[in-house]
């Protein structure tokens, strides 16, 4: 491993303030530079590690950029058909109720082809954590319009920008599932700044702990970027996300448990 250190004298085990969890494997992630998936993987791995749940966790990866999640997080993982992760996770949790079960899906997977599975898993109140990465675009297939694409936003299948009248408006799945009695904790977060990363990690930790209570579905949307699909640098994409995505997808809790 080729490393560059700042001041060697400080780099001692007793001074370690932060290092990625071992549950995030050494495999270099296949995501484009600056893609939010990597951060969400990292903090999810950290939460599982910190709560000592590696041997009790079963994840479900989607079809999309994060299809290879199983190469990066060192827990048992099933890779589901496009959009079907909530159905797959439903059976896993019903058959192994003592395990921590999570799904990880992008917006195409969760909000387009998997809309039915998403809504019905939430409506049954499946006791799982659903992580929803919303970057308003199909990343893996090359930047096509997603149900979450903003009006006016250009993609390879909305080259002049999304037109609401003919292409529909951004679908707010998180708002929809928050209205269902089956959901227990619904929040929308981001990972584009260190402060937001800490908040999102806190939300994930809460959701993981809620699963022990068996009160229903926890649903965390993470508004994220797609520098390649948006044709921006990572830093530009984060700024654009703040200015353009957040007004449509405002961050914050949509449903919190009555405690």
């Amino acid at each position: 491993m080729f490393e560059i250190a700042g001041i060697r004298e400080i780099v001692k085990p007793e001074n370690l303030a932060y290092r990625k969890s071992d549950l995030l494997t050494e495999n270099v992630m296949s995501y484009c530079p600056g893609c939010g998936h990597g951060t969400v993987h990292r903090i999810l791995a950290e939460v599982i590690d910190e709560l000592g749940l590696q041997s009790d966790t079963i994840g479900v990866s989607p079809v999309g950029c994060s299809v290879l999640m199983y190469n990066y997080i060192d827990v048992d993982i099933q890779q589901a058909a496009h959009g079907r992760a909530p159905a797959v996770a439903t059976a896993i949790k019903r058959l192994l109720p003592e395990k921590f079960v999570f799904t990880y899906q992008g917006d195409g997977d969760l909000a387009a082809i998997g809309t039915a599975e998403t809504i019905h898993a939430c409506n049954r109140g499946e006791n799982i954590l659903m992580l929803f990465i919303n970057n308003g675009i199909y990343g893996m297939t090359g930047g096509q319009m997603a149900p979450t694409t903003l009006v006016g936003m250009k993609s390879s299948t909305s080259p002049a920008g999304r037109i609401a009248k003919t292409m529909g408006s951004p679908l707010k799945m998180t708002d929809i599932v928050a209205t269902l009695p089956g959901t227990y904790y619904v929040t929308r977060q981001s990972v584009h700044t260190p402060a937001n990363v800490r908040k999102t990690k806190k939300a994930i930790r809460k959701a993981v702990q809620y699963q022990k209570l068996d009160r229903g579905t926890c649903f965390i949307e993470i508004v994220s970027n797609c520098p390649s699909g948006w044709k921006m640098t990572p830093v530009q994409s984060n700024k654009w996300m703040e200015e353009t995505m957040f007004p449509v997808y405002p961050l914050g809790d949509l449903k919190t448990p009555e405690e």
Binding site: I10, V11, K12, N15, L16, A17, Y18, R19, K20, L24, V28, M29, Y31, P33, G34, C35, G36, H37, G38, T39, R42, H192, T193, P194, V197, R198, P234
Partner: peptide, 19 residues
């Protein structure tokens, strides 16, 4: 040693030490 860089890092590249 505030670890902001590591928190923001998308690929888990950075370890942080402080004293």
């Amino acid at each position: 040693g505030c670890a902001s860089c590591a928190m923001g890092c998308l690929d888990g590249v950075i370890a942080v030490y402080k004293t």
